[in-house]
Amino acid sequence: MTEEIKADVLLVDDEEQFLKVLSQRMEGRGLKVDTSTSGEEALEKVKGKDFDAIVLDLAMPGMSGIETLKRIRSEHPDLQIIMLTGHGSVEKGVEAIKAGAVDFLEKPADMNKIMEKISEAKRKRVLLVEKKREAQVKEILQSKGW
């Protein structure tokens, strides 16, 4: 099994059985996993909780993966979103990356690859959060004239 990673992950896919087995496998690797079966539900979940990475299906009934990606990114630009989909066209991959996804994986994907991408996403997010904090501290210091 791959090395344990401590991260909070949101899995979004309309296939409940897929969510069930994938989250069990991820939890076995140390991740804390939350799941959503629709884009609408995912948008609600990210409002109340900080996730290190979101693994998002591209083709879902109702709000599509791309639409969900755009909505999440517009409200939470720091969130790292990995697309995981059965829709394997290059055009869709490019569209997802342009819309702000950090990676694009095709189903069925290799578990080690998924874990690797989550680990990278977490690293990027930590860096972004640190930079943001640094900027905030600088701003405070400047405003106080220190």
Binding site: M1, E15, Q17, F18, V21, L22, Q24, R25, G28, A59, G86, H87, G88, E106, K107, P108, A109, M111
Partner: peptide, 25 residues
Amino acid sequence: FTHEIKNYLAIIKESSGLIGDMIKM
């Protein structure tokens, strides 16, 4: 068709992977 089949294969892959994980644990 191919999209549906890839979804079924993904579940089969993760399910068999889960059996492997459980044995390793």
